[in-house]
């Protein structure tokens, strides 16, 4: 326990890097994911096919392999980027299809009768989507999106295996330095992750419960 308290600054530094990874790749994935989801439901078949292929390919590739590509293969191809940027790119790419699927399932989850009702009232495409479909889809999308971010928080630890000194790497270093206090040190690391993941998980469950009843 003393070890944990004594190395609190190290923990916080690692936690800061973890939060940076989470923030940057979270925003990046949200942007790319939205674009991909829009492509996926667009009326243009070529875009739809591309988005589907993108989603399937990235969703079935392990994160380790994606990060490996960004950290080792990209420099080998001539790109010179710092490790943390490469890790952010990898996490963004890996997370974006999950965001896209969450968004798409939200739109698909709106009962078709809603759209029919809107159309039969004489609303156009824009009106039906913005006034009827989107407000309902939004509620269905938020809980799965929060879950994607919980997963992303946990996934940032994989970047620790690729030269990014974040929480996991800090914990590993501390555990190696204090061989007699491995369990407290790692429990310390775990609690930092749990600080982020458990409240987010509770939030998602609450929103889901509240909004499902409201529908």
């Amino acid at each position: 326990m003393d070890v944990v308290i004594a190395s609190l600054p190290d923990y916080l530094r690692g936690f800061g890097v973890t939060l940076i990874l989470l923030g940057v790749s979270g925003v990046g994935a949200l942007i790319i994911g939205t674009v991909v989801a829009a492509m996926r439901i667009s009326p243009v078949p070529a875009l739809r096919g591309f988005a589907a292929a993108y989603t399937e390919a990235l969703r079935n590739t392990p994160l380790t392999l994606v990060l490996f590509f960004c950290i080792f293969v990209l420099p080998n191809l001539g790109a010179t980027i710092p490790y943390i940027t490469a890790a952010c790119i990898g996490l963004t790419l890996y997370t974006s299809p999950f965001i896209a699927e969450a968004l798409r399932s939200g739109v698909n989850g709106v009962p078709v009768g809603q759209a029919e009702a809107a159309r039969s009232l004489g609303m156009g495409f824009g009106q039906a989507v913005t006034l009827v479909i989107f407000p309902q889809a939004f509620r269905m999308v938020i809980p799965p999106l929060v879950n994607v971010f919980v997963a992303l928080t946990k996934n940032t630890s994989v970047a620790g295996g690729f030269f990014v000194t974040e929480l996991f790497t800090v914990g590993k270093g501390l555990a190696n330095a204090h061989g007699n206090a491995v369990i407290p040190v790692l429990l310390g690391v775990a609690s930092f992750y749990l600080i982020v993941t458990i409240p987010l998980g509770l939030l998602s469950a609450r929103l889901e419960k509240r909004w499902v009843v409201a529908r």
């Binding site: 969450a102 698909n108 989850g109 759209a115 479909i133 879950n147 529908r215």
Partner: peptide, 27 residues
């Protein structure tokens, strides 16, 4: 539960389930 009313079709052609199974998997 929570899908009141009968028609639970989907708006795009990939019809089927309210939510695909992969989405419920936690990464």
């Amino acid at each position: 539960r929570g899908h009141r009313g009968a028609p639970t079709g989907s708006l795009s052609r990939t019809a089927g389930f309210p939510r695909e199974p992969e989405n419920s998997a936690v990464e």
